[in-house]
Write a protein that binds this DNA or RNA. Structure first.
Lengths: 188, 188
DNA sequence: TGTGTAGTCTTTAGCTTCGAACTTTAGGTT
DNA sequence: AACCTAAAGTTCGAAGCTAAAGACTACACA
């Protein structure tokens, strides 16, 4: 249909541009503020592109995006890089069952260790290995290059403005959903 | 660390605040621009909260998020609301196999119809039913209320600024990934 | 006309996740 | 002490996704 052979800013495969998408929303659903829709659509599309980029990076390193998320949670928890499966599951928005299997895989790859907490034998402790920490560092190096590139067209002032506006959105939505640290369908 | 027992803006379940998360990144990975990290972390967290909200809404209507995405693509394609499974799969970032099954389910729920294209019998035409269009409308009504609430703290000027900054990010990343209309792992 | 080739779905097998039942441990109650 | 309840993980079966192979159609070329 559309001939996109020449314009590299047009998305491939007939994907509509942001403007076309907003126009389509106006056409099909009139009582919609175009300003609001522009922000929301841009957020949604941006997030998809970022996920594409992160997936490419992690697969280069021989780990999955799922594993990267676990490594990230453990590192951000600070030394000694330990968390329980349940806490990890909440942080990542997974069921405990999924977390069990994910940890299984990561243990066999030596990214983490799993052992019982001897002071409270119901609990399990998942701990980052040096290899896991190294993989996280490699992933962070790739991610930070990508992120810097993503923002390269914005001045320092613009970056600050964007960060502040996004933070205000986040505060609003986290206030409205104080419980949504859990998985998507876990509500009320 | 932080005592969040009283402050409703603090996320539940010990999830770190945005500031705590950025501080943790600084601690674990020094060569990271805090301004960049703030924007990226806010984007990531915002997206997760938005997905939570959309999932709640669609489940209220008795459809899944997956089905809502198909309805959305069909409606935005414009009347007569028809697309091929392959095109839908590309738009949604799925494999054709997954699209086949997803359409199966939606046909049994009378959200769409599926028939062969008689002018080219290799092709299949997926068409929105009146019921499917009605479900999409109901979902849009809920979504637009949520989206308006999300932006309620921003003035019109701020909304415009945010939309413009996000669009510049999107242009940058779509330029860098002209092929990423496909699924996440489909690269190069 | 016959054959090759490319394009468009569908089918199959394996993996990841979820929901729900189950096991084990800790702590309170009588 | 014996029991009850709650909490933390694991196991089990069903659902959805991917990758790869298969089936069918259209079109080009000899």
């Amino acid at each position: 249909m559309a001939d996109n052979s020449a314009d590299p800013t047009a998305a491939a495969l007939g994907e509509p541009t942001l403007e076309e998408q907003i126009a389509a929303y106006q056409r099909e659903f009139q009582d919609l503020d175009p300003q609001v829709e522009k922000v929301v659509s841009a957020l949604s599309r941006l997030n998809r592109r970022m996920n594409v980029a992160y997936s490419r990076q992690t697969s280069e390193l021989g780990i999955s995006n799922a594993e990267w998320e676990v490594l990230k949670a453990l590192v951000l928890s600070g030394a000694p890089y330990r968390m329980g499966p349940g806490e990890l599951a909440k942080r990542l928005g997974l069921t405990p069952a999924a977390m069990t299997h994910r940890i299984d895989r990561m243990v066999t790859e030596s990214l983490v260790t799993r052992e019982r907490d001897e002071s409270n034998r119901v609990r399990v402790i998942v701990e980052l290995t040096p290899l896991g920490r190294e993989r996280w560092l490699e992933a962070m190096r790739l991610a930070s290059v990508f992120e810097e590139g993503l923002l390269q067209d914005l001045s320092s002032d613009e970056r600050a403005t964007l960060g502040e506006l996004l933070t205000r959105l986040l505060i609003r939505v986290e206030h409205a959903q104080p419980d949504a640290g859990g998985r998507l369908t876990d509500l009320d």
